[in-house]
Design a binder for these strands. Structure first.
Length: 847
RNA sequence: GGGGAUGUGGUGGAAUCGGUAGACACGCAGGUCUCAAAAACCUGUGGAGCUAAAACUCCAUGAGAGUUCGACUCUCUCCAUCCCCA
């Protein structure tokens, strides 16, 4: 590794050049095809890792390619810079979150620049700055006006000793991450965005997102979780209360033998209050509530519950059934109360077995003679024939669903309904480092939105970070204010917004980052939006992408957008792993960007990342692989410089080849054009940078062979040759080789931009290679004169022959049958048929 | 339990529309150069059989079946790993 190309010098030189020239700045240009290329912006947590870099290298390569193809490419970068980690770091390092964030951003920008990423830095957007979060507040007020932002009680994690709200990730094993006290669940007034209002549209429009991966759409579909079913009103015994339940199985209504309620259901504690059941129920609820959803609903989790001492009345049968509170019922789904039919639902079945609750079968299989119910080992969940169901007995259960729902509707006991799993978006966070919610509480006037002209409500700088509670609450100068209406003393909302609010529209801010009348300028947004290609990790498949889609629709209804969907195409790159595990500090398998750029340079890192695997798959980091990429670039460097050098190559002086052993120059010309085609299509159609690079490697290998063999060729002539004639049959050697070298450098330039700029200049061209047109191939040049035909006998490869391209199928068939090797296999056999696949293969089928 | 993805040499991967399995690279082995090494360059490299060598033959894409003249590719069953949901 002693001698290598001077990548440090070259990379610095061209990064400076691009920066000085402002080469990547873009403006709206109606005359050019726009292309908005977006990467998920990072959280500035300190150092960028190779996982980030993979995202950016894919994006940057694409951006450079598209520019050369003549697109007007918007390629911006920003930082998602509000959030809990900054606040924690501030507490630990005794710095201000703003300071810490600023430092992280500066570090990350340096690393991104070192990788040669071609962002338009003029559009840099940092979400923790008032000129950005002002518009979060503005949007909040618009949502509030439209009823899309509202307040209601919701349970939160509460640490009684720290007296603070905890995020879910701060609860470890049901205990506070800092002081290890038992976490409690408290109901608190919180702000919500009404995403459920768009549930149907969000679901429906998934069908129009042709450029999205199927699995992401599927995940969103499941998350929205639409189900059609029936709402049935049970009555509470000895009360006039109604217990509404949602079911997708109204056909099993006659088989209800108990009810279960979610532990979080507010009615639970109300119903047991002052009764002998109170103590037991409370203890149970408090225990269950702290387990996370996953463990609670896991298949193998023991189903548990407690009788609460009350009964519900089935409207169809007037039967009384006991009410339980159970661990497997979630408040979020349906109404939080479930009618339990143990005969036809597996979880209900297990529960009933455990607590000796009767099991009543109301559907029997279509196939006759089934074992009696008492011997059932599991619930019967499939459709069948209705039994024990009054006037519905004998019906097909699918049919009965409809009939029973109809009957309930007639009687006013229930109705058909559509249910979504999607919940409204809780945006309140009880912490400092986020966008202040622009609301004022006045004793006289109530909830008052901050007037638009008073925005932004700025985060106060002067707060104490004790690690406990929300520092904003203790900041008197922030909290105390005047009511905008009556001007009396009032108090500010101290909750801040979820950071997902910031990332739900940042891509629109890039379009007009300097605009100060609204979040973004219509004229410019209409030119750039929607995003043509979004690139990011699969971990955002649900939350971020769903919120951004919701924002787009809501802002459209406010009149800010013309579009319905923000991201036309989505690409999710795989993870970067090392030693079989995702790179992470705790595992100690992190490869830092600096380490790689210092040792091999950015071009090598870029090339390796793209070459080692197709971008949607996980990428295994390999030191040998990186060295291989480095070797390749050195090879390219020597090859091109050898061609431009005045000194003849020392090693190539040995002997002159015979005239007939001269390299096939026409082949090289063909190879060049085939490579253009392959590389272009691999990038454009498939995102398969790995095969694009291997095609370039093949071209380099071919060139290498030609240059080495062609010892009679005076290398000095490379420097100032005329461009190759691409129209006529067989160009001169010099032109062909020159064309091959220039094309190769052009094709390689989006992947390894620095070295290619330098080589381009060395070849006697003016910079910048990034502003040259992407090469196009000549369809005539890629046609082979002779093609290889595979000959099979009974599907087995037996011979190959070369034939002229224009030979007819019949002639090919004849040649195949006459082939010496084939004769051996078909002699004495009767030929049943011969299949000829034009220009590919002949299969001779014998009896 | 439901849904999805993946499974190809010693390794990463290629085979884009059902038509030569293993492109390109890594690694390894041998060679050239060198006092030696590194670098660079050249040659070989799925397995087995048969060979002095070449040629040739057979086997091989997680396992097993099916469709087809022909299957890494399509269908079914199973196994393993990963992801999402419950």
């Amino acid at each position: 590794m002693r001698e290598h190309y001077p990548f440090k010098k070259i990379e610095k030189k061209w990064q400076d050049y691009w920066g000085k020239k402002g080469q990547f700045k873009v403006k709206e240009d109606p005359g050019k095809r726009k292309y908005y290329l977006l990467e998920m912006f990072p959280y500035p947590s300190g150092k960028l890792h190779m996982g980030h870099m993979r995202n950016y290298v894919v994006g940057d390569t694409l951006a450079r390619f598209l520019r050369m193809k003549g697109h007007n490419v918007l390629y911006p970068m920003g930082y998602d810079s509000f959030g809990l980690p900054a606040e924690n770091a501030a507490f630990q390092n005794k710095t201000h979150p703003a300071e810490w964030t600023k430092r992280c951003i500066s570090d990350m920008r340096k690393q991104q620049a070192k990788m040669g990423l071609s962002y338009d830095w003029d559009r840099l957007t940092i979400t923790c700055q008032p000129d950005y979060y002002k518009w979060n507040q503005w949007i909040f007020l618009k949502f509030y006006e439209k009823g899309l932002a509202y307040k209601k009680k919701a349970p939160i994690n509460w640490c009684p000793s720290c007296k603070t709200v905890l995020a879910n990730e701060q609860v470890e094993d049901g205990k506070c991450w800092r002081c290890e006290s038992r976490v409690e669940i408290k109901d608190l007034e919180q702000w919500f965005f009404k995403i459920t209002e768009y549930a149907e549209e969000l679901l429906e429009d998934l069908g129009r997102l042709a450029g999205w991966p199927e699995r992401v759409k599927l995940m969103q579909e499941n998350w929205i979780g639409k189900s059609t079913g029936t709402l049935v009103n049970f009555r509470l015994k000895d009360s006039d209360k109604i217990l509404p339940i949602f079911t997708t199985r109204p056909d099993t209504l006659y088989g209800v033998t108990f009810m279960t309620m979610a532990c979080e259901h507010p009615l639970v504690l109300e119903l047991v209050e002052g009764t002998k059941y109170e103590k037991e129920v409370k203890e149970f609820v408090n225990r269950v509530i702290l387990e996370d959803r996953f463990t609670r609903t896991a298949e193998d989790k023991e189903k548990e519950g407690v009788f609460i001492g009350r009964y519900a009345i089935n409207p169809l049968t007037n039967e009384e059934v006991p009410i339980y509170v159970a661990n497997f019922v979630l408040l979020e789904y349906g109404t939080g109360i479930i009618m339990a039919v143990p005969a036809h639902d597996q979880r209900d079945f297990e529960f009933a077995k455990k607590y000796n609750i009767p099991i009543k079968q109301v559907i029997k299989p279509f196939t006759v003679h089934r074992k009696p119910l008492t011997e059932l080992k599991e619930a019967y969940i499939d459709p069948g024939i209705m039994v024990n169901s009054a006037q519905f007995t004998g019906l097909n259960s699918e049919e009965a669903k409809e009939k029973i729902t109809q009957y309930l509707e007639e009687k006013g006991w229930g109705k058909r309904t559509v249910q979504y799993k999607l919940r409204d978006w809780l945006i309140s966070r009880q912490r400092y480092w986020g966008t202040p919610i622009p609301i004022i509480y006045c004793e006289k006037c109530g909830i008052m939105p901050v007037p638009e002209e008073d925005l932004p409500v700025e985060l106060p700088q002067n707060v104490k970070f004790t690690g406990k509670g929300n520092p904003l609450k203790d900041c008197q100068e922030f909290v105390n204010c005047r009511c905008p209406k009556c001007k009396e003393k009032a108090k500010r909302e101290t909750d801040t917004m979820d950071t997902f609010v910031d990332s739900s529209w940042y891509f629109s801010r890039y379009c007009s980052p300097d605009y100060d009348k609204e979040p973004f300028e219509k004229k410019r947004i209409d030119y750039w939006m929607p995003v043509d290609q979004y690139i990011g990790g699969i971990e955002h498949a649900i939350m971020h992408l769903l919120y951004a889609r919701f924002f787009t629709k809501a802002l459209r209804d406010i009149g800010l957008y013309k579009i319905d969907e923000p991201f036309k195409k989505l690409f999710c790159q795989g993870m970067v792993v090392k030693d079989g595990a995702k790179m992470s500090k705790s595992k100690g398998n992190v490869v830092s960007v600096d380490e790689i750029t210092n040792k091999y340079g950015a071009d090598t890192a870029r090339l390796f990342i793209l070459f080692a695997s197709p971008p949607e798959k996980d990428l295994e980091w390999s030191v040998e692989g990186v060295e291989g990429s480095f070797r390749f670039l050195n090879r390219v460097w020597r090859l091109v410089n050898q061609a431009t050098s005045h000194k003849p190559q020392a090693t190539s002086q040995k002997k002159k080849p015979e005239a007939d052993s001269l390299p096939p120059v026409a082949d090289l010309h063909r190879k060049v054009h085939q490579t253009i085609k392959k590389v272009t299509e691999d990038i454009e159609k498939r995102f398969h940078f790995n095969t694009a690079i291997s095609a370039i490697m093949e071209l380099v290998n071919a060139l290498h062979l030609v240059v080495n063999q062609l010892t009679s060729y005076p290398v000095t002539q490379f420097k100032t040759g005329k461009p190759a004639n691409r129209q006529t049959g067989k160009p001169a050697n010099r032109q062909t080789i020159e064309e091959a070298i220039e094309t190769m450098v052009l094709l390689l330039s989006p992947f390894a931009p620095h070295i290619c700029e330098e080589l381009w200049e060395n070849l006697g061209n003016k910079p910048s290679i990034g502003q040259k047109d992407w090469p196009t191939y000549d369809p005539k040049a890629i046609i082979e004169e002779e093609i290889l035909i595979i000959i099979q006998v009974d599907g087995k490869l037996r011979s190959r022959i070369k034939v002229p391209i224009d030979l007819s199928d019949d002639e090919v068939k004849e040649k195949a049958l006459a082939d010496g090797r084939i004769k051996k296999f078909i002699s004495g056999k009767k030929i049943k048929r011969v299949i000829v696949i034009p220009k590919k293969l002949v299969n001779i089928v014998t009896e």
